[in-house]
Design a protein around this nucleic acid. Sequence first.
DNA 1: AGAATTTATTGGAACGTTCTAAACATTGCG
DNA 2: CGCAATGTTTAGAACGTTCCAATAAATTCT
Lengths: 350, 350
Amino acid sequence: MASRAKATILDIAREAGVSKSTVSLVLQGSGLIRPETALKVRKAIEDVGYVYNRGAANLRKAHSNVIGMVINDLTNPFFAELAVSMERVFQAAGIVPFIANTAENPVRQEEVLKSLLEQGVAGLIVSPARGTTPGAFRRIEAAGVPVVFAMRRLPESRIPAIAPDNHRGAYLATQHLIGKGHRRLAFFGGSSDLVVYHDRLGGFIEACEALGIPAANRTIVEGETSRRGGMACLETALAAAEPPTAALCFNDAVAFGVMLALRKRGLEAGADFAVVGFDDVAEAEHYMPALTSVAVDTPGLGERAAHVMLKMIQSRTTRAEDHIGAVSLVVRESCGPSRSAHGTGMGDAA
Amino acid sequence: MASRAKATILDIAREAGVSKSTVSLVLQGSGLIRPETALKVRKAIEDVGYVYNRGAANLRKAHSNVIGMVINDLTNPFFAELAVSMERVFQAAGIVPFIANTAENPVRQEEVLKSLLEQGVAGLIVSPARGTTPGAFRRIEAAGVPVVFAMRRLPESRIPAIAPDNHRGAYLATQHLIGKGHRRLAFFGGSSDLVVYHDRLGGFIEACEALGIPAANRTIVEGETSRRGGMACLETALAAAEPPTAALCFNDAVAFGVMLALRKRGLEAGADFAVVGFDDVAEAEHYMPALTSVAVDTPGLGERAAHVMLKMIQSRTTRAEDHIGAVSLVVRESCGPSRSAHGTGMGDAA
DNA sequence: AGAATTTATTGGAACGTTCTAAACATTGCG
DNA sequence: CGCAATGTTTAGAACGTTCCAATAAATTCT
């Protein structure tokens, strides 16, 4: 059934009785062409079932209209949401975003980046995988392709990053826990090969210091950033002689895991143990008990990242400013009854 | 900082003191080249920071190594999981999958498909958006690009589809509800412009007929396939004079919504109202109460779809067999206490 | 009417690869 | 030593587009 060979611009030129240049012009929507001619050409295109060969075009144009989004974990709703929010603005700008998943694997990431580059993307938005080596983007920078990091960044990289104010978010959350009367606190999940981890842990520690929680009363447990990881963290922490009574979790997935593990032990989040998450994914609100979490405005950050990228492409630069997004603590039930009727906004201390 | 102009095969030929043909051969890993020459070339490539231009290559080769995966809703964990399972097998096969999201929007889908085609993909795996018109794939078929549908299919299309046995899944679930003593049943969520909808609803109805639930005792409420949709469905159904006591939901998202709405009314899923979901996403197990759901083996289906695609590409055909995956009911808590200690497998009736 | 201007159309040389066929080098053999 | 066989390398013609410069046709101006 498939037509002999792929139809080209020449075939449709013949079909329409014009030159290939004319067809090309029509394809680009040039106003130079007489409307009737354009119509003839468009009809031929339809009849022949022609499909434009963007590869050939890019060969000449040097400017492609596709950008790549490289995501570390698409199965995490948080990153999925990030991806679709970026996608929206690219679509509106007439450029086509292709999404690739690295499954938190630096080797896979390397392959994916190589492919995307070879494909001739105009830009790259990346949420780097755990353990990405600092040199991983050297070649890409050298190639002059604009890159922006979203949500995560690399240590000592000059690549612009769009991320929430992790330090402040963690500070707010910790403050909230201390305000609830907790004196033995934990920080659960994440691993130190992530810059975000240090940001969030830093906020936690700073709040502890500022509000009089000595190091001896702080438990820090690294772990997978997943439900399973959260469950493991709680088990480890509760095994201690003087276990914590509240935890700030690296992200919501970890928090869900912690709550799960609590339930398994017959304990209740909120009543017996306070837990706060990070990211405020959609699910947090519907969990039982509803999860107090640090909201980071994922779609907002995604859109911002996309806009920065568009600007970079347009101005042919490879540099841009970092952008740090505002965060807010949204308090729900997982830290016990709220003092104010139903909390929202910036927590309960100035 | 960016190098003057993109380096080409010619630049590196000059650098290495060989001809462009030699460089090309090295790039393709041809054994014809003397190892020392190959080494020289590879060094030049490294030095110059050359990036392969796959567009130019495809122009000549007619064979690309990228395939497109077009997904209707990446924010739904079910489809995200589908995507990554397919991705895994493609990666292993050395072909690069690009993911695009259509956000359940046929117009967007049209654009995405066009882009992917223009990019010269070797094949397309699609989970079509709601309301996709039957003709949407005509052009693609005409272009001779292999397509397979995953999870969803189109009415009267010759494109091969990989999907679970929706009819049987719904039948099993309904049977389970009736076995629990329910006599007024509902089917919640989904809309009739989806083939899956008819499959699942069909299974529901067939089970009702077979097991003596008259049409008067069946409530069917269409709705969004999301949490919000599920909440709405429950509200509508409970407003009736003789409301149902149990519901089979179009998918797990709807089921979660139903449980949420129940809670809001002070009712408890399992005790006051039985609900079963469809798809058995990871979350189902951890919900409160844990959701009874029809498991469809998402990764298995994804892998199968990917393999079918690989085979089609390899054998240069555009046709393939449909594949219907086995399903099983995994019973948890959302339909009340199980008779057998902790249910799993195929439900409780032959 | 002819020149000047504007409006539509076109030929042909790129773009960066691959691939066929041919050239060049080396070796073994009689 | 000449020739065949083998092993390496290369020139040059594609591939399907874009875009510059040129041409052709229609219009306006003087």
